[in-house]
Simulated scan of single mutants.
Amino acid sequence: MSRRPSLPPPPPPVEIRTWPDREAMLADRALILRALVGMHLGPGRLGVLVMWAGLAAFGWLLVGSGLVIFEQAADFFSGIAGILSLLLGAGALIPAVVLGSLYVARDREIRALLVGWGALDRDPEHDRELRLPGMSLVWLLLSFVLAAGGLALCVIGPASARPGDDSYGMVALIMGLGMVAWLTGLIGAVKALAHRRWVLRVLAAPAPPAAPAADAPARADAPARR
């Protein structure tokens, strides 16, 4: 069984809410938002992103090495070694891409739940704990470094290649590693900026209007007496 924590359900519509009072609703809201913020921006999520990025980089390293070996193969055994490297690299790269896509899709679900539960009401005392400015800054700085380094590899690698000295496989290897770093940094930056946007647009926004009370039962009009 997967150890990944399951996501909470979205907040119930107004018509079927069963909280006895506002305090009970705020307690559930604070508990769920705290869990969702941890799932979205916690240190564990940073470790998972780095793990999938490392697996993708390792897979592309094997793929690029296989291209270089296959391109420079001088005999049959060198060609076999290049093909094996390509297959091993694909075996690491494809799962990393699939799991990374699932990671991004789960983040979108978490952000939708954050908006839904955050819009229920305002609780300044507990909402202050959800802002996490330091963690957001860590995500943003690390993402910027990764994205800048990856973009530099994608540009410098082909620009510095010399015809006859550098093979196409080596250029592809450098560009692939740069692309992995750039995409990882982009994902991290989107997470950090999305959290900041959620804080400003949901937590710091004015409280939503209170739900209208249930209509009283209709009264039968008594005939007017003269």
Rank of each mutant, 00 (worst) to 15 (best):
R3Q: 10
R4D: 12
S6I: 08
L7Q: 06
P8N: 03
P10T: 02
P12N: 08
V14Y: 08
E15P: 04
I16M: 07
W19A: 14
D21H: 15
R22C: 11
A24D: 05
A24Q: 11
L26I: 08
D28C: 04
R29D: 05
L33Y: 03
L33R: 12
L36A: 02
V37S: 03
G38W: 11
M39G: 05
L41K: 02
P43T: 07
G44R: 13
L46D: 04
L49Q: 11
V50L: 13
M51W: 02
W52G: 00
A53Q: 12
G54D: 01
G54W: 02
A56Y: 00
A57R: 00
F58G: 03
G59Q: 02
L62F: 13
V63I: 14
L67S: 05
V68P: 00
I69G: 00
F76M: 09
F77A: 11
G79W: 03
I83P: 00
S85R: 04
G89F: 01
I94E: 02
I94W: 12
V97Y: 02
G100I: 05
S101V: 00
L102Y: 10
Y103H: 11
V104S: 06
A105R: 13
R106I: 03
I110W: 05
L113Y: 01
G116C: 06
L120H: 01
L120E: 02
D121A: 06
R122H: 06
S136N: 09
S136T: 11
L137K: 07
V138A: 09
L140F: 12
L142G: 14
F144I: 09
V145S: 03
L146R: 05
A148W: 07
G149A: 05
L151Q: 05
L151F: 13
L153D: 04
L153V: 01
L153Y: 06
I156S: 05
S160R: 11
P163Q: 02
D165C: 01
S167G: 12
M170T: 13
V171L: 09
V171R: 02
I174G: 06
L177N: 10
W182F: 14
A189L: 15
V190F: 14
K191Q: 09
A192Y: 12
A192G: 11
A194N: 15
W198H: 15
W198M: 04
V199L: 08
V202N: 03
P209T: 08
P209W: 09
A210Q: 10
A210Y: 04
P212C: 03
P212I: 06
P212W: 08
A213K: 15
A216F: 10
A216W: 14
A218M: 13
R219V: 15
P223M: 15
A224F: 15
R225A: 14
